[in-house]
């Protein structure tokens, strides 16, 4: 478990959410945002795969949601804020997503945070 935080915006450190990501993840993001509605949360929890099929998600996408593969979902264009609604619905939270992204357990990540760095624009990183 490493605490080095690179000063660049490249994967896997960072996934910039831009237009192409938004297109790639349009259905995934839409599915996650549907869980802003409490009725939909109940329906989803009663039959996860069935609910996602109705949203037109692919088999791969459904499998990633079922496996709580937060990193895969973000790479597939699921917006973090939308995947956070999925996490909330299944009893997880931002720490679980972050820990999956950072390759450690939520407890390990919590112990590591805040991951302090010191740098200013124009300085040596």
């Amino acid at each position: 478990m490493s605490n080095s935080v690179p000063f660049n915006l490249d994967p896997p450190g960072t996934y910039i959410y831009d237009g192409p990501a938004s297109t790639r993840g349009y259905k995934l993001t839409k599915f996650g945002l549907s869980l802003r509605n409490p009725e939909n949360r109940k329906t989803f929890l009663a039959d996860e795969a069935g609910y996602m099929t109705e949203f037109g998600l692919s088999e791969d996408e459904i499998a990633m949601v079922r496996a709580r593969d937060w990193t895969g979902l973000i790479k597939a264009g699921g917006h973090l804020q939308s995947m956070l609604k999925v996490a909330a619905t299944v009893g997880e939270n931002l720490w679980h997503i972050g820990a999956h992204n950072a390759g450690m357990s939520a407890e390990e990540l919590q112990a590591l945070c805040p991951r302090k760095v010191t740098a200013l624009p124009g300085g040596d990183d």
């Binding site: 994967p11 896997p12 973000i74 992204n101 950072a102 390759g103």
Partner: peptide
């Protein structure tokens, strides 16, 4: 930063 492996970065100086 709340996604990616840089999750949790904290630059108080900045």
């Amino acid at each position: 930063q709340i996604s990616g492996a840089r999750f949790g970065i904290a630059n108080e100086t900045l």
